[in-house]
Write a protein that binds this DNA or RNA. Sequence first.
DNA 1: GTTAGCACTCTGACTGTGAGAGTGCTAATT
DNA 2: AATTAGCACTCTCACAGTCAGAGTGCTAAC
Lengths: 342, 342
Amino acid sequence: MLTERRAQLLSLIIGEYVDTATPVGSDAIVRRFELPFSSATIRNEMARLEEEGYVSHPHTSAGRVPSDKGYRYYVEALMQERDLPNEVKQTIRHQFHQAGREEDEWVHLAAAVLARAVENAAVVTVPRTTESRLKRLELVGIQDNASLLVLVLQQARVKQQVLIFPEAIEQDDLTAITNHLNSAFRNLTAGEISRSSAQLTQMEWHVANAVRDIMQASDRGGFDEAYLEGVRNVMQKPEFATSDKMLNLLDVLEQRNLTRLIPFREISADGVTVMIGAENEEDVMREYSIVVSPYGVPGGITGAVAVVGPTRMHYPRTISTVRFVSELMSEMLATYYDEGGG
Amino acid sequence: MLTERRAQLLSLIIGEYVDTATPVGSDAIVRRFELPFSSATIRNEMARLEEEGYVSHPHTSAGRVPSDKGYRYYVEALMQERDLPNEVKQTIRHQFHQAGREEDEWVHLAAAVLARAVENAAVVTVPRTTESRLKRLELVGIQDNASLLVLVLQQARVKQQVLIFPEAIEQDDLTAITNHLNSAFRNLTAGEISRSSAQLTQMEWHVANAVRDIMQASDRGGFDEAYLEGVRNVMQKPEFATSDKMLNLLDVLEQRNLTRLIPFREISADGVTVMIGAENEEDVMREYSIVVSPYGVPGGITGAVAVVGPTRMHYPRTISTVRFVSELMSEMLATYYDEGGG
DNA sequence: GTTAGCACTCTGACTGTGAGAGTGCTAATT
DNA sequence: AATTAGCACTCTCACAGTCAGAGTGCTAAC
């Protein structure tokens, strides 16, 4: 445990470093905060903080830089998460209500709003149910032997695919197939459709297989689909003066394999999780922190909201913004797609 | 007009510069291509090329760099566009046939494939009809007073939106509305729906308005929706050693306002258009070239395929790849969504 | 426990230097 | 008349040296 004074000092160092991005020296901090001690005292305290691993020293005669451990301690014990100002909340809420009612649009918007608010990159995944149920299917003729298969799944998820039939087929037949399958499969999961004992014609089988495949693909999908915004914000930060680091980050973020990067699986069931620097599994993320929160209905439809930026980030602001946006997304989902209606 | 020899020389300079990204000197080029002249002769010719504006001089004692005019002459008169090797074509084709049958997936894939093949950024827009027609609509209940409105438009375009009703509504009523509107509006455009004289109940009006709004929004959309891939490729190029330029480019590309950037309106009705450096309208694009081609059925459903990279790009390869991918996209669209079936 | 003082260290900006690459011109050569 | 060798000149780039500034760690005094 740190003494009260050292903890305070750590907090000041982090605050200053987050602002200026330059290692903070004893003299600078005493003058900036008009501390009732001399810089020599602070130097001693800093030396202790360094011994214990909370800050580090880029080189002999430079100021101190917080370490991952320092940030961790700060996040857990020192910082106070203050609620977002009401104007900010209102502004964000307003943007959401202005947006259309398409779920993808919200997700995109959430990423954009978040990226702007915290001046870092934001990732928001499309929400998923654990296992989707079929609400309705529709076949629309395109050509003699091809039609568009549209599935409406539980929670207003829509999937589409062009379906080729082995032989030409009439609109009347399409309608008949549609009606039959709709009554046979309504509210079933992919697994239940597979095991269904409904009597089906050959053509119906063809369609049913496609339906099952699409639903399985959707279930397997997990968190794959995600919106990414604000990469530029991260690259603008002074720690990325070298173009090498930019390329590395871009590399990681551009291939949309965000799932591998962000520990969606490990995030606590409710509330915000913070992963700092080397706490991240991936090597490339050593210099970044991730602030992530799930949203949606626990056990039902869920997604995740995350911010990615350098470890030197404004944690209280980021955490409370992530929290607010995830709550807002939950709220939106609950309003329009609640479990009962699904 | 350039003399034969100067034209050849320009071609060599461009070839060399595209490869090495360093200004090319007289000596270097003589040795590299074992020219039957001395470097002094080449120096004289280079001086003439510079006088006429085809190449320029970063500073007194540096080699020559092609100017926009030089590239333009090269593209028009010197280079020979050779067809893509058959293996490459096959590989690309294969990837498309492996992909699903969702149109968006193709567009995304086209951008990814193109970016990889030409090692630059690629932009591919989602294809649009000039005016969409309604094929079918569907209402799926979500809650007492809310349902999901799904529209299937001509050319297998699917749109969805949550629709809130002023009062609670039964599933039977939804079905009745759906049936009535489907028969009244089948194959109509947004404008025709507005002017329709069909007798509608209040609820039906509510739905019809939403349908019209969605269709209008879709028509207005123009080229807005686009997939962007391979920004990293561009940033990796040596001309982007400074992080400033990276940020500028990222700035432009991240806000998906690609329409403003790429002259979709001006591209010739068929074939590939090349915009070099300052020929682009936007200031930020001064150092970039754009190679763009429309695809789809002229007058009907169309989109565009484009490559964005530094002016120093491999034009023959880029042009033939853009051409091939746009042809492939046209082919895919024709196969699955031809006008007759739409 | 705190502080003043001081020697020491490292960075970053600036300067100077020399090799290397390239040019442009002139005079000689084919 | 076209080509080429030769040469002085220019500019860049990498490298080393210098110096002010910021910061540290230690010691001795308060």
